[in-house]
Amino acid sequence: MHRTKVRIVEDALDANNTIAQANRADFDRAGVTVVNFMSAPGAGKTSLLERVVGDVPQVRVGVLEGDVQGSMDAERLAGLHVPVTQLNTDPSFGGECHLDANMVRSALPELPLQEIDMLVIENVGNLVCPAEFKVGEDVRVMVSSVTEGEDKPLKYPLMFRTCDLVLVNKIDLLPHLDYDLDRFLYNVDQVNPAAERLLVSARTGAGIDAWRDWLSDVAARSREGAIA
């Protein structure tokens, strides 16, 4: 018996990336634009979806709800008469803290891809793990609410770095907080200069039209094949 070194040099996430590519190809074939929607718990993902998914002009939106447990978010959205599919990440103990490409793949047969133009995948609330795992999306959107503090882009650079759009939510609370909005936007610019930024409040409706327009625009660009 002797020991031999075997050189490999392979990204350990290759398997996930390969499955993500297969998902993306299936979504493309069905003409469905996919948004990977991420944030910390309680930043307002579901509230921001409630505000727009029912009336994006000329875009039929469906939602895939990723949660560790339960279907509360799915039930909230079902009232808006858009197709919602629930995906729980808790097959054994604890439950995964993110969605990966294989979980989304397993949900494919249940998704009404022929009835929708856009699928928003609401990821598990978490700023670390979801950033590591592609699921087959065209674009990544994250929500950062002003109650989380302006330092978050520097603390979770991988998440902020990989997003196409940052929604700054709960701006109606700004008068009551010490939050420095300019500082936050500067930090985003440091980590991801290319990221678009929208200031919104799911509660008051501020900025919601711009958020809806952004989704409409992404769907249009995706149809033209303009998203890499």
């Binding site: 018996m1 002797h2 070194k5 490999i8 040099v9 392979e10 350990a12 996430l13």
Partner: peptide, 14 residues
């Protein structure tokens, strides 16, 4: 951004 398996050491029979 690396997260790669660079190499492994395996036990071979003689």
């Amino acid at each position: 951004n690396e997260f790669e398996v660079e190499s492994i050491e395996v036990e071979e029979a003689a």
